[in-house]
């Protein structure tokens, strides 16, 4: 029968790509930047990671390459929004469209190849899963207990004040965007290297967008991101279990579950933020606004 531990371990693995991407985006948004390009950075990481792992035979090098590729694509977004002051929503969308196209273009020769095997960690679970879990307290500690974390939150809360205090709004934001890209890249590579074990076009299938929704769900906190990612992982595992059990519901309808669940939690949490006494919820004050210093 169903062993709760093995189900939980499946849930952990299903939640990992979203967890990485959402933790990265959490830092980006706490710095006051809304990067809608998560999906594009994830797919780029999925491809670059898979290609590097295949070329070297080492999944670890694959994940490093994925982080670099994710950060590199994020820099396009950083250049557009931080130097050329372009609209963040449009720039993020452009990054997603561009990343999906670029990965499809360069991924063609890699189709049908199997990923190199990984040595599993404790409980026969991938090391990257444990790394993801470790990143939750690390991100929390960075944001709430360190000085750079305080500065980052300050930049996100009120960029004019941070600038007046002498902090480099642009510098902090570029660093945050780069970190977000690296995390999204690792999350994407987890799908190609550790879950699906091969490269297919469009394989991230909206995971980046779900990660964005989970940041809202988390109320912009690291533990909240973990809860959101697990909720998503749980729905995914449940959905796959129901498919395997041969429930009398079409497969296509079951596979809607993660997206519908995302909408559902987004609505729940938005309603709470909307009707709570604290107006505006806990979204960073300068979220999505560009900063241009006149002096």
């Amino acid at each position: 029968m169903i062993d709760p531990l093995s189900v939980f371990l499946l849930l952990l693995a299903a939640a990992t790509p979203i967890l990485f991407a959402a933790l990265g985006e959490l830092i980006v948004e706490r710095a006051g930047v809304l990067n809608l390009g998560v999906e594009g950075m994830m797919i780029t990481g999925a491809l670059a990671g898979f290609a590097a792992a295949h070329a070297t035979g080492s999944p670890i090098i694959g994940f490093v390459a994925a982080a670099i590729a994710g950060a590199a694509t994020a820099m396009i977004f950083a250049a557009l929004t931080q130097f050329l002051l372009a609209n963040q929503v449009a720039s993020g969308l452009a990054l997603t469209l561009f990343g999906l196209g670029l990965a499809a273009l360069f991924g063609k020769p890699l189709e049908g190849i199997k990923a190199p095997p990984m040595t599993p960690g404790p409980f026969r679970v991938n090391w990257i899963v444990w790394l993801g879990l470790l990143m939750v307290p690390v991100v929390w500690w960075f944001l709430n207990r360190t000085r750079p974390g305080l500065i980052l939150r300050g930049v996100g809360e009120n960029h004019d004040a941070a600038h007046a205090l002498g902090y480099s709004v642009r510098g902090v934001r570029i660093a945050a965007i780069g970190f977000g890209g690296a995390m999204a890249g690792i999350g994407g590579a987890f799908i190609s290297i550790a879950t699906v074990l091969q490269w297919t076009e469009g394989m991230t299938a909206g995971a980046g967008w779900i990660a964005l929704a989970i940041v809202v769900f988390s109320n912009w906190s690291a533990p909240g991101v973990l809860a959101g990612a697990w909720l998503f992982g749980g729905v995914t595992v449940l959905q796959l279990r129901l498919q395997a059990a041969g429930v009398d519901v079409p497969v296509q309808l079951l596979s809607m579950a993660p997206y519908l669940a995302t909408i559902f939690v987004l609505v729940l949490i938005s309603a709470r933020q909307k009707y709570s006494r604290r107006a505006g919820g806990t979204a960073p004050g300068s979220l999505g606004q560009n900063f241009h210093a006149l002096r």
Partner: peptide, 8 residues
Amino acid sequence: FGASEILV
């Protein structure tokens, strides 16, 4: 509910 129309 104030849910983001982008994500939904």
